[in-house]
Amino acid sequence: MIGPRRLLPSMPALLALEAVDRLATVSAAAQELSLTQGAVSRALQGLEGQLGVALFVRERQRLRLTPAAQDYVRHVRVHLTGLSQASLRLRTNPGGGGLSLAILPAFGVQWLAPRLPDFARANPGVTVHLSTRLRPFDFAAEGFDAAIHFGRADWPGAEHLLLLEEVVLPVCAPAVMPEPVTEAEALLALPLLQLESRPGAWGRYLAQQGLPGQRPVGMVFDQFATMIQAAIHGLGVALLPEFLIQDALRDGQLVPAWPARGHGLGSYYLVWPRDVPPRPPLIAFRDWIAAQAG
């Protein structure tokens, strides 16, 4: 049930409030909204008058929201985002068959994307919208139906479906290692490539091979894709999830530097909000991806 209509601000007023909070000046908000400064100021004054509450502390040429207004605009931003997402889903899928999914870049490109045509063939009425997110987020704030999560089954307020347990393998270009190493310790003599978000990955892997306490250093990358290319071009040995390098191993661009697999930091999950009844497109996607991962 909608509350008293007298407390429902206009959309222009809410957009002006959100923009001024984010950009800190009326002039910047006006430029983003393609309005005059006077129009933005009038919208804000009208909002304060309607709510009967002062929303800003005015400091020279800048506006600073009061603590109460800061809390208010957080709620406003959540609902504006939700309205935008709902409008996008309606526009692109008038029949209600849209699914908004947040994905991890490497998993999305290497594992999910090659399989999506099968989902599209089986579910022609569902259009999947993919957006990259590297870290967990608030489902209510972002408006996604589901997300691909890496780590443990610990996303608060979410249901989890295990997709893939990560297995890692040290690999390099054939030219980096003309002769296979005969023991894991020999890896320490080779240039090791590392991922910025997983600084202890080599130490964990070497401990699994019976070499605890190692903290090797090496060239650092911020994305798996970049590190894979660096390994292919001979910059060193990369510790990579096996599912990301199957093609490169098959084609001979990469070879195992040491044959033992290791356990990664976590697993890949499909997660969706627990307190929101899943829509038919999500149910169809969940059942399909469970079969793919099975």
Rank of each mutant, 00 (worst) to 15 (best):
P174C: 13
G234H: 02
R215N: 15
I2L: 10
L193S: 03
L244P: 01
A201T: 08
T81W: 07
A113G: 12
D247L: 13
G262E: 05
A248G: 09
V220W: 09
L14P: 09
R215K: 11
L187F: 07
P191Y: 00
P114I: 08
Q194C: 13
P273R: 00
H129F: 09
G203Q: 05
G151E: 14
V26K: 04
L130T: 00
G52P: 03
F150E: 02
T132F: 07
H149T: 09
A120W: 11
G143S: 14
A147N: 03
L33S: 14
A141N: 07
A207W: 00
L211I: 14
F285H: 01
V73H: 10
R152N: 13
L14H: 05
M227E: 14
L162N: 13
V40Y: 01
P178M: 11
M1F: 06
R286N: 09
P259I: 07
Q209C: 10
R121V: 15
L235M: 13
M227L: 15
R215Q: 15
W288G: 10
I228M: 10
L206S: 03
I245E: 04
P114T: 07
L8Y: 07
Q61Y: 02
S41F: 10
F243Y: 15
P117N: 11
L7Q: 15
A16T: 01
W202M: 08
E48I: 09
Q214L: 13
L116I: 14
M177I: 14
L239T: 06
A260Y: 06
F285M: 01
T182R: 13
R198I: 05
A293E: 05
A120Q: 14
L44P: 12
L17D: 04
P216R: 00
T226W: 02
M11L: 15
A106C: 07
E48L: 12
A140S: 12
F243D: 08
G46T: 04
V217H: 05
R204E: 15
L33G: 09
V109C: 04
I228W: 01
I103P: 01
L244S: 00
G38P: 00
L270D: 01
P212G: 04
A231H: 00
